[in-house]
Nucleic acid binder design. Structure first.
Length: 914
RNA sequence: ACUCGGGUGGUGGAACUGGUAGACACGCAGGACUUAAAAUCCUGUUCGCAGCAAUGCGAGUGACGGUUCGAUUCCGUUCCCGAGUACCA
C-alpha cells in the first residue's frame, strides 16, 4: 500500500466539508480560545507561497489548542474594499463587486486545498452590505460620542450637550473659545453643531490632500513620486479639502497604557510607542513685535529658553501671511510656493539641504525682552505641536545647522560644553548665561521655567503627541459610504433604520467634478446631500474580529453575551506591514466600543505573532546588447549585457531550462545561448515576491506535486515563523520523504499493514515521550520549525528500532495531526479508530520514560574539553571530586600541579581548574 | 540620521537560564539494489594539517577587545545586512 496523498487529501477535505467538522458553536462548555489571522485583501494575482505561512501557523496552533481541550474559534474572511479593484474598474469598466467576488473564489479554492480548519460558515467580507451596515453603525456611535476627560472615557455626545447647557465650557483642548451655559443656549442650531463637531470621536474638518489638477483627483502618498503623479507625471500640490477624521489623539494615553497589558513583541510595542510619540515639555507664547499676533510654540527643552536666537514657523501656517513684513512678502511667497510643490517624501528624504526664509518679523523674548527674528522653514511641520518652534542653536543640532547656514549669531548657554562646532544636546550639562537658571541642570531649570511661565501666565506644562487624528475620508468609490447627510453645512447622521447606506451602481468610476469621490457623479446621491467620500480600508478591518463571533446577527454588530464568551483574540497572526496603522486603529475602536458598554474588553488582541515576509528569489538571464543571444552568469562580464527577469519556474536551482525559456515568449523563440560547462547559469537576487519579477511560486503547484501535508510542514520547516526568508522549493523533498517514512511504519508496499499490538520497550517509550515533551513545548511557543525536526528524528529512531507498535506510534500521530491533518486522519482511521483524530485527546508524556541514567561525564581541564577522559561516575559530588583527583589521565593533564577547583556542571560535565 | 531585528558549514537553519557548536533538512561525493532510470536504503560531508587507517593536532559562530575555569549566548567598540520610522523641536 502506497502513500497516495492526492486521494487521501481529497477524501478528507470532502468529509470535513460534508460533516462540517470545523463548524464552531458559540456556547460550549469548554474554555474558549480565539485564534485569528489578519484577513487578506483578495488581489487578482491569487495566493503565492508567502500568504499561507501565517495561516498554516495559526491552523496548527488552532488544532493544537483543540487537542488540548479548548473550544477554538478560527475564522477567515476578506478585506474586500480597496483601491486595486477600483483601478481595475476604471480601466475595464467591470464592477469591483464582481471582480472582488471572483478573486475571493480563487483564494478560497486555493485555501481549501491546504486543508485549513477555518469555520467558513463565519466568513465575512467587508464589502458586503450586511457587514458594512455595521461598520457604518459603529461609525455613527463614534460620531455620536465624545471623550470625557473627567471620566477618561468616551460617552454619548448627549452628556456633553447637557454639560454645555448647564455649565458651559471652560479650558477645553478641543475648543478654545470658552462660553457660558447661557451663551450656549443662545447659539443657533448650526453654531451648536459646529461646536459639537470639535468633540465628536468621528468628526469632519478641513485637511490637506495631495491634489493633482491634471488628473482632477486626490492622490495617495504612494501615487506621488518626486512631486508629480505616478501616472502621467503631472504636478501635485497640497490642497485643503473637507475631510472626516477619527479623534484617535484622545486615546493616545490609553493606547500607550494598553501596551503594558498585551503580549506583543518589544519591537512592535516600540514601533507603536514611537508612532504615538509622547513627549513632555511646555507650550508658551512669544508676542510679535508691533503686532497683535503671537507665536505659540511647543518645546521639550524649556530650560534652554535663554539660548533662543530665532523662531521658526511652518511655511503652511496661517500665521505666515499675518506676520510677514511688506519688504519680505515676495520672498516668503516664493518660498511657500516652493514648499507647496514639494512632496512630503522629498521634504523627508533630503536632510542635508537647508532651506528657509526670513519673514521680516521679530518675536519678543518673554524673559529678556530681546527681539528674535522669525523665519519659516520646511523643517518645521505644521502638523506637529503648534507648528512653530523656538530655535536654540547651541542646544539643538538642526537649529545649529540652520543658524550656521543663514549666519545667525549663536548664543552659548552651555559654557565650555558648547565648542561652536556642534550643538550640545546633553541634559547633564549645567546651564550658564541664563539669568535665573545659571548653574542648574536641565531638569531643575525646566521646572523653574515652567513655574515662571505659569506665574506670568504665558505658558504651561504640556504633553504632546506626534500622532495626529486619523484621516478617515477617501475620495474613492470602493469603500463604505458615510451614513451622513449635509444640511446647510451641518452633518447629520442617518437614522439606524436607513442602514446600510448601500453603494450605488456606477456607470463610470472617475472622480467627481471638483475632485470629490465618484459618488459626486450620482444624481440620486447628491440630490439627498449625502457625503460623497467613502471610508478608508482600515474602517472594516478595525472591528472584523468581533463580527466573526456573531457573523449572521441582523440586529446587532455582535451580541454582547457572545463577545463576552469569546473575549478578545487570544492569538493574532500577521505581518509587520500593518503593524502600526491597523493595530492602532482597531485598538482605538475596541476602546471606544468598550467605553460605550458595547463590548466587555478594551484590548482586541492579547498576543501578537508577526510572521516574517517570504521573499522571492529572482533569477536573471543576461542578453548581449542588441542581440538575441544570452550569456551564462559566469561569462557575462565579457560582454555588454541587459539583465532580464526569468520565470523562476523555468529554472532548476540556477540552471535555466533553455527549451522552456524559448517557448516562454514569442520573441525568445530564436534565442541563442553562450553556455558554461554545457549549462546556462542564471544570476540571482532576493526581492519582494511579485508577479512582475517572475519570482512567485504558486502553492497549488506544490500541493499538487507533494500534497498539502508536505506543503504545510515544509512551510513551517523553512525557519522561525517571525523571520523573513527567501523562498526555496529545494528542501521540500526532505519533508516529503519524512511523510513517506512515517507511512512505512504502518504499511509495507508488499505486505500491506505491518503495525502490531505489541507492548513497546522502554527504549521505544523513551523515544515517544521525548518527542511528546519536545513537540508540546515547541507547539505552544510557535517554534514549528524545530517541531518538524523533532518529528523527523522520532520517525528515524522508530524506524531504526524497527518499531511498528501501535501503542508507540498512536501518540505521535495525535501530536502530528495539527501539522499533517489529512495523513494523520487517514492513518488514525486505518488503525481502527471510529472517531476522528480531531476528537482525540492530547497524549501525556510520562516523566519516567524521560529519566536519563547517564553514567559518563566528559571532563574538561581549564575549560578545554579532553575527549579522551570520559569518567564513569555514579557518586555524590564530593566522591566525584576525589575520583577526579585520583584519576591518572587527569593528573597527566594537570602537569602534576594540584587542582584548584573542580566544577560539577549540572550533572553533565566535570571541569577541572588548575 | 534614528529605532528595532539579524550576521553560525556549499545552503535553510539547530543549540534550554553561559557547559561537548553545527541537531534536522537540502546539496554534494561514494556505495547497494536495477539491463537502465525513478524510488528506496547505506556511508561520508565545518575548515586546515598529518596519517594507509582508526585517529590525532590546530582553527572556527562578521571583526577586535573584556568578564569567566568555560562565551554563538553576557558587556564594550566596530563592520555588514534586513525592516520600520522621521527635519517630532
Amino acid at each position: 500500500m502506497e502513500y497516495n496523498f492526492r486521494d487521501i487529501e481529497k477524501k478528507w477535505q470532502d468529509i470535513w466539508e460534508k460533516t462540517q467538522s470545523y463548524l464552531v458553536e458559540n456556547h460550549v462548555d469548554r474554555p474558549p480560545f480565539y485564534v485569528l489571522d489578519m484577513f487578506p485583501y483578495p488581489s487578482g494575482a491569487g495566493l503565492h507561497v508567502g500568504h499561507p505561512l501565517g495561516y498554516i501557523a495559526s491552523d496548527i496552533f488552532s488544532r493544537y489548542k483543540r487537542l488540548k481541550g479548548f473550544h477554538v474559534l478560527h475564522p477567515m474572511g476578506f478585506d474586500s474594499f480597496g483601491l486595486p479593484a477600483e483601478q481595475y474598474a476604471i480601466e475595464t469598466g467591470q464592477h469591483p463587486a464582481d471582480t472582488t467576488a471572483k478573486n475571493i473564489e480563487t483564494f478560497k479554492s486555493q485555501l481549501r486545498k491546504i486543508g485549513f480548519c477555518f469555520d467558513w460558515s463565519r466568513e465575512i467580507r467587508t464589502s458586503n452590505p450586511d457587514y458594512y451596515k455595521w461598520t457604518q453603525w459603529i461609525f455613527l456611535q463614534l460620531f455620536n460620542s465624545w471623550y470625557n476627560p473627567a471620566l477618561n472615557k468616551a460617552e454619548s455626545i448627549e452628556t456633553l450637550m447637557h454639560q454645555l447647557a448647564t455649565v458651559g465650557l471652560t479650558g477645553s483642548n478641543h475648543y478654545t473659545n470658552d462660553f457660558t451655559a447661557a451663551e450656549w443656549n443662545g447659539f443657533d442650531y448650526e453654531k451648536q453643531q459646529e461646536i459639537l463637531m470639535h468633540f465628536r470621536l468621528a468628526f469632519s474638518s478641513v485637511g490637506v490632500v495631495n491634489w493633482c489638477e491634471a488628473l482632477g483627483t486626490v492622490l495617495a502618498n504612494d501615487e506621488v513620486v518626486n512631486g508629480v503623479s505616478e501616472r502621467g507625471g503631472h504636478p501635485v500640490i497640497k490642497k485643503k479639502m473637507r475631510q472626516w477624521y477619527l479623534r484617535i489623539t484622545d486615546y493616545a494615553e490609553r493606547l500607550l497604557e494598553g501596551l503594558n497589558r498585551v503580549d506583543f513583541s518589544d519591537s512592535m510595542k516600540e514601533m507603536q510607542r514611537n508612532w504615538i510619540g509622547r513627549s513632555e515639555g511646555a507650550e508658551l507664547i512669544f508676542p510679535i513685535l508691533d503686532s497683535e499676533h503671537t507665536i505659540n510654540i511647543f518645546t521639550t527643552r524649556p530650560d534652554t529658553i535663554f539660548g533662543v536666537d530665532f523662531m521658526v514657523v511652518a511655511p503652511e501656517s496661517d500665521l505666515v501671511e499675518h506676520i510677514t513684513k511688506a519688504e519680505q512678502k515676495e520672498e516668503v511667497a516664493k518660498y511657500v510656493t516652493y514648499v507647496k510643490g514639494r512632496s512630503d517624501r522629498d521634504r523627508i528624504a533630503e536632510t542635508k539641504q537647508i532651506t528657509g526664509c526670513f519673514t521680516g518679523a521679530y518675536a519678543v523674548h518673554p524673559f529678556t525682552g530681546k527681539s528674535v527674528p522669525v523665519w519659516i522653514s520646511e523643517y518645521v511641520l505644521a502638523g506637529y505641536g503648534t507648528g512653530a518652534i523656538m530655535a536654540v542653536p547651541s542646544g539643538d543640532q538642526r537649529d545649529f545647522n540652520f543658524a550656521n547656514h543663514f549666519n545667525i549669531p549663536i548664543t552659548n548657554i552651555f559654557g565650555d560644553a558648547f565648542d561652536g562646532t556642534a550643538a550640545c544636546t546633553s541634559k547633564e550639562v549645567t546651564i550658564s548665561n541664563s539669568e535665573f537658571l545659571n548653574g542648574l541642570t536641565s531638569k531643575q531649570a525646566s521646572e523653574l521655567v515652567l513655574q515662571k511661565l505659569a506665574e506670568k501666565k504665558i505658558g504651561a506644562r504640556k504633553v504632546n503627541y506626534k500622532m495626529h487624528d486619523a484621516g478617515f475620508s477617501r475620495q474613492r468609490y470602493w469603500g463604505e459610504p458615510f451614513p451622513i447627510q449635509w444640511k446647510d453645512g451641518t452633518a447629520k447622521a442617518l437614522a439606524e433604520d436607513q442602514l446600510p447606506l448601500q453603494l450605488p451602481i456606477l456607470e463610470k468610476y472617475g472622480p467627481g467634478p471638483k475632485g470629490e469621490g465618484p459618488l459626486a457623479n450620482v444624481s440620486e446621491w447628491t440630490a439627498q446631500d449625502l457625503e460623497t467620500s467613502t471610508m478608508p480600508g482600515y474602517a472594516g478591518s478595525s472591528w472584523y474580529f468581533l463580527r466573526y463571533m456573531d457573523p449572521k446577527n441582523e440586529s446587532r454588530f455582535c451580541d454582547r453575551k457572545i463577545s463576552d464568551y469569546w473575549g478578545p483574540v487570544n492569538v493574532y497572526i500577521g505581518g509587520t506591514e500593518h503593524a502600526v496603522g491597523h493595530l492602532l486603529y482597531s485598538r482605538m475602536w475596541t476602546k471606544a466600543l468598550f467605553d460605550l458598554g458595547l463590548i466587555g474588553f478594551d484590548e482586541p488582541f492579547q498576543k501578537l505573532i508577526n510572521q516574517g515576509m517570504i521573499q522571492g528569489s529572482s533569477r536573471f538571464a543576461y542578453r548581449i546588447k542588441n542581440t538575441n543571444t544570452f550569456v551564462s552568469f559566469g561569462l557575462k562580464d565579457q560582454y555588454q549585457t541587459d539583465r532580464i527577469h526569468v520565470d523562476v519556474n523555468m529554472v532548476d536551482g540556477f540552471e535555466l531550462n533553455t527549451d522552456a525559456f524559448k517557448t516562454w515568449k514569442p520573441d525568445l523563440e530564436n534565442a541563442a545561448f553562450v553556455l558554461e560547462d554545457g549549462k546556462y547559469i542564471c544570476g540571482s537576487e532576493t526581492e519582494k515576491m511579485s508577479k512582475s519579477k517572475y519570482n512567485t511560486v504558486n502553492p497549488d503547484v506544490l500541493v499538487d506535486r507533494y500534497g498539502a501535508d508536505t506543503f504545510r510542514m515544509y512551510e513551517m520547516f523553512l525557519g522561525p515563523i517571525e523571520q523573513s526568508k527567501p523562498w526555496d522549493t529545494k528542501g521540500i523533498e526532505g519533508v516529503h520523504r519524512f511523510i513517506k517514512k512515517l507511512w512505512r511504519l504502518f504499511f509495507d508496499e508488499q505486505k500491506g499493514k505491518i503495525w502490531n499490538e505489541e507492548e513497546p520497550t522502554p527504549a521505544e517509550w523513551k523515544v515517544v515521550h521525548k518527542t511528546i515533551k519536545k513537540i508540546d513545548s515547541d507547539s505552544e511557543n510557535f517554534s514549528f520549525n524545530t517541531a518538524v525536526s523533532a518529528f523527523m528524528v522520532c520517525v528515524n529512531e522508530l524506524t531504526e528500532l524497527n518499531c511498528h507498535k501501535r501503542k508507540a506510534i498512536e501518540p505521535i500521530l495525535i501530536l502530528l495531526s495539527p501539522y499533517a491533518p489529512h495523513l494523520t486522519e487517514e492513518l488514525w482511521q486505518a488503525l481502527g479508530n471510529v472517531t476522528s483524530i480531531l476528537d482525540a485527546s492530547y497524549p501525556i508524556c510520562d516523566e519516567k520514560y524521560l529519566l536519563e541514567t547517564e553514567k559518563e561525564y566528559p571532563v574538561s581541564v581549564n575549560g578545554k574539553l579532553r575527549t579522551n577522559m570520559v569518567l564513569s561516575l555514579e557518586a555524590s559530588q564530593s566522591e566525584v571530586e576525589e575520583k577526579v583527583l585520583a584519576d591518572d589521565t587527569i593528573k597527566k593533564w594537570l602537569d602534576g600541579k594540584p587542582a584548584k577547583k573542580i566544577i560539577f556542571v549540572k550533572g553533565k560535565m566535570i571541569n577541572v581548574v588548575v
